[in-house]
Write a protein that binds this DNA or RNA. Structure first.
Lengths: 301, 301
DNA sequence: TGAAAATTATGAATTTGTCTCACGTTCGAA
DNA sequence: TTCGAACGTGAGACAAATTCATAATTTTCA
């Protein structure tokens, strides 16, 4: 069959108008055109859609079945049109975020909460552990924003700086390292290192410290949740290097000792990678503004 | 916008085929036609549906939204086509039954149970109390079968006889009438009559007895459910005239006395009114066969 | 890096389908 | 029966979709 939305619209109009002539007027076409259309549809379907006996043309049983479909489908089409219109006007959009930085949940969630209420027509989502590389996925439009601390030069992609943070060493006061003024790469050689389950290339402690110094920790244990990681640190089952906004939340608790990484401490900058085309979207600008201010509140908390 | 199903099919095909050329082949059209079609759609929508940067043409965010719609809508269209095909082959259909005879639930339900398993593709339904007249509704194709005991001569409608039944008087043994060998119209003058909530013209007790004799019962109480009506009879709150297959179910119970209506007893014939066009449908024939045999089992039970 | 291969875009001609116009037909009511 | 309203039909006009041929890409692979 060659059913088209045009036919569904006609069926609905004929039902609502209670006749072919009035329906034709509703749809800005001649009564003849509608008659032809319906006839063609019936020929294709091989089913009588209208009770032809009496004059104000009424739907047959099969026609009523078709009407039900029309009443289900057409509103969805209209909804999509409304969405596209909002999209053109910059009110709607999609913001699917890929995080390379696993601890970013902490500040991302409050951000998205604020954002959602301001831009209800933007479809938000977070994808934590991507099975694939995040930046290619950004180019492929599978995601719309990537949180990363390693800007790359990619055509069509821009890296917007968000804020600076410091990777901080954290361990139990019972750990011997707790006595030191700061930690160095060599200090990890006899430690169990707790990390998020990600590639080493995406973990500050490796890219900034251990890999350049060619130091390998005694053991590595991968942990998904920040809260669990802190528990393990508190019970001296391992040490970790975490962003300052995470460490700040346990400051002053007697179970934890925090130290700078290297004598000067490390500083890293977080970026939002987005497609060039999206950089001008008003909602994207709003989100970036939030992503620059929210985390700072956490860091100062 | 001028979105059509054709476009949804194309979107889906391009997604599934992973490219425009392969999709075009899948849809038995040239690659050029698809390219033109997509371009037209994007112009209309004012939204980029595909990521044009890289060659094996992929869906953009908006395109993915459209794909979701396609995946929701197209299966429904296919389902309808399957239904229409079954309809043409006489496997599917609609059997919406209107009852003028309210007590017919008793035998109609078992009938429909059997029928449903034999003709799963026929959409069955019962409408008990129609707000309108049942026969005009049959002509208008709002229902497909009317249970009635008053055949009329209507163009396009045929009355198929189902079976005969006897309207039987039923009362409590404590009721004075319980002593009589049969009841007459005059006996109702000082009785509370229990009836289904229908027009008098559709109730045997009036059409066959009281109206011709110009007798009015002391009171009329309308009851929806047969079981409730029997309860009221048992507690001598009223008397009733019910079809024999209903009365048969309480035969032998000490709470009830049943008597013939008039000396000879009444006999009525039940008909199924259907549209002429449906008379040749195989499933309709099957249903009528069931409707002739099932009730007789109840009457003999 | 450069050429070949694969993939998509474009433009004009053609085909297909849809609509309009004018008139015929049917149905229901007076 | 006749009238009027509502629907059907057919030919031509028009619009839209498709095709063919070819250009402009990007991707792949040597």
């Amino acid at each position: 069959m060659h059913l088209e939305l045009r036919h569904l619209r006609s069926i609905r109009a004929i039902h609502e108008a209670g006749g072919l002539a009035r329906a034709a007027e509703m749809m800005n076409m001649t009564q003849s055109a509608l008659s032809h259309q319906i006839k063609g549809l019936e020929d294709q379907a091989g089913v009588e859609l209208f009770a032809r006996r009496s004059k104000p043309l009424r739907l047959s049983a099969a026609g009523q079945r078709l009407l039900r479909l029309a009443q289900k489908v057409l509103p969805e089409i209209d909804a999509l049109n409304a969405e596209f219109r909002a999209l053109r006007e910059g009110k709607a959009g999609r913001l699917h975020i890929a995080m390379e930085c696993h601890a970013c949940f902490e500040w991302l969630m409050p951000c998205l909460e604020h954002f959602r209420s301001a831009w209800p027509q933007v479809d938000v989502d977070i994808r934590a552990r991507l099975a694939f590389e995040a930046l290619p996925a950004l180019v492929r439009e599978e995601v719309d924003l990537v949180i990363s601390s390693d800007p790359e030069d990619l055509p069509g992609v821009v890296f917007q700086p968000l804020f600076d943070y410091a990777p901080v060493f954290i361990c139990s006061p019972r750990n011997p390292l707790a006595q030191k003024p700061y930690v160095m790469a060599e200090d990890f050689a006899d430690q169990t290192l707790l990390t998020y389950p990600m590639d080493r290339a995406r973990l500050d402690v490796f890219t900034e410290l251990l890999t350049p110094a060619r130091v390998e920790p005694l053991a590595i244990r991968q942990v998904e949740l920040t809260a669990i990681m802190l528990m393990l640190v508190a019970s001296n089952r391992g040490v970790a290097v975490l962003p300052d906004w995470v460490v700040r939340s346990v400051r002053g608790q007697p179970d934890f000792v925090t130290l700078p990484v290297t004598e000067q401490g490390l500083t890293r900058r977080l970026y939002a990678a987005i497609r060039e085309e999206d950089a001008t979207q008003p909602w994207m600008a709003h989100f970036l503004r939030l992503a620059r201010t929210e985390p700072v509140k956490l860091q100062r908390a």
